[in-house]
């Protein structure tokens, strides 16, 4: 028998929400939805309104820049356990790059409008989210810096 998993359970088991109280898990679940993208599909496009963030459940997504006359430049690939999309927190709330499914991708999306409303009435909920987001941003920044070193480059 196949049991369809509830969003609450998926959120609870995702490392991003580790240690979150059951009440808050329910609050987040209230703004969450399952999404599915076929390989090649766009989750977000540069410049478009960013009103969600995503937890990757399955598959690989690429963060990429479209470059004229060249194939898109992949900035980073993300997969199961990763989180992406903080443009909804930062004005002007538009996607900073394209996000494309490289394989079949299953995501949980969290709706920004829905969350903002809840944060206004419960700042602690906002804190719980931000303290999870900041390390993600810091890690991503550290990785970007590491790649700026171009450490495998052949010496000139």
């Amino acid at each position: 028998m196949v049991r369809i998993e509830g969003l609450e359970r998926i959120l609870r088991e995702h490392p991003f929400f580790e240690g979150l109280s059951a009440d808050y898990q329910d609050l987040f679940a209230g703004c969450a939805a399952n999404e599915r993208f076929e390989a090649g599909g766009f989750v977000g496009r540069e410049g478009e309104p960013a009103n969600k963030f995503y937890l990757v459940r399955h598959g690989i997504v690429a963060l990429e820049y479209a470059v004229p006359a060249r194939p898109p430049l992949v900035l980073e690939t993300l997969e199961e356990g990763d989180v992406f999309g903080w443009s909804w927190m930062v004005p002007p709330h538009t996607w900073a790059f394209d996000v494309r499914a490289m394989t079949l991708v299953r995501l949980i999306s969290l709706d920004a409008e829905c969350l903002r409303g809840k944060f206004e009435s419960d700042h602690r909920l906002g804190y719980e989210l931000f303290r999870r987001f900041v390390p993600v941003v810091a890690k991503r920044l550290a990785a970007a810096r590491m790649r700026l070193l171009d450490m495998y480059d052949s010496p000139k």
Partner: peptide, 16 residues
Amino acid sequence: DRATGKWRGRVGVVTK
């Protein structure tokens, strides 16, 4: 560390 769209593998630092 970097790739164009033809690469189907991972893009990111080895530490990840």
